[in-house]
């Protein structure tokens, strides 16, 4: 079972925080195929958030094929994340390291780089749902 938490100052939409936490648990293996996600009521009574937010997060996960809602029973994990993805991450990380080195040589300081990175992220994720354009 997963226990959700909220970072109210992060600026990240609440339903996205829930989505990320499920994905993280899938990567770490704390959630495995067949596990049941907490019901909307359970999440809502723990976090004091709108039930529709939970349902929206679950719909998003369902759309990505990670979980499956079974009427009357609950929402269950379909597949895990990780393995191949971890290797991808290592490669991406190496590329990012290389980018940071080049930026430093070009005279950018830490703040410049962070501004550039967050601008790129904002552009990439404009319009809400994550993953669509980059997939």
């Amino acid at each position: 079972m997963i226990e959700f938490h909220l970072d109210r100052r992060s600026g990240v939409a609440t339903y996205l925080q829930l989505v990320h936490q499920v994905k993280q648990a899938l990567r770490l293996g704390t959630l495995r195929p067949g596990d049941r996600l907490p019901t909307a009521r359970e999440v809502v009574e723990a976090l004091a958030i709108n039930p529709n937010t939970v349902l929206k997060a679950y719909r998003e996960l369902e759309r990505e094929g990670l979980v499956e809602g079974r009427p009357g029973l609950g929402t269950f994990v379909q597949r895990s994340l990780g393995g191949v993805r971890l290797a991808d991450q290592a490669a991406l990380r190496r590329e990012l390291d290389e980018w940071v080195r080049r930026a430093r040589r070009a005279g950018l300081d830490r703040d410049d780089m962070e501004t550039l990175f967050s601008l790129a992220m904002t552009d990439a994720y404009r319009g809400g749902a994550a993953g669509e354009e980059t997939a």
Binding site: R41, V44, E45, A46, L47, A48, I49, P51, V54
Partner: peptide, 11 residues
């Protein structure tokens, strides 16, 4: 109060 309220809405 909010937890109780949201639980009710969910239920």
């Amino acid at each position: 109060v909010m937890r109780a309220l949201m639980g009710e809405v969910a239920e």
